[in-house]
Amino acid sequence: MATSQKAARLGEEVWKTRVDKVNAELVTLTYGTIVSQLCADYDNDYAQVNQQLDKMGYNIGMRLIEDFLAKSNTGRCGNFRDTAEMISKVGFKIFLNITPTVTNWTADNKQFSLLFDENPLADFVELPDDGRAQDELWFSNIFCGILRGALEMVQMSIEARFVSDVLRGNDVTEMRVTLIRYIEDEMPPDDE
């Protein structure tokens, strides 16, 4: 698809020329510390940990979108399918140098999956054998919040959630993204 190739080229170009880089291990270790701190603070209540990660991601997403728009210099996406390509080939590329695969579209083009075959946030992670983590913790849940926050700032209300994770012993790490609605401008922007 033309959009996919264009997006891939844009992602590569921005990554090569407009992105300051750091060693991935710094991010892996920092994120690992976040999750580990949350598990300790919430006494291994993984539902709470997931929620907190989502919230953090939402905060990040709302600011990250500006950085994304500035670096990629790209206009509004024509439709949700284009949005998906931008997320995977440009968004994830210019921040984490990964390009999750876009797949599993529903017939109405409102829902798709992102398949992660690499994930710098989860390197060397093994979920504890406490009988619950494998069923309850979504280690990379911050991604869901980031997508939600970022897209909300460009007038899209979405829902994102993981449906499988190799850390849980599943075959793939898959995030399901659903477009709920486009947010119409109801009022003129408020200066706060």
């Binding site: 510390t33 999750v35 580990s36 598990c39 992670v125 983590a133």
Partner: peptide
């Protein structure tokens, strides 16, 4: 390197 492993604790793997 596993962030969920507590250094100094038993290796249960």
């Amino acid at each position: 390197l596993n962030p969920l492993y507590l250094p100094g604790s038993r290796i249960a793997s």
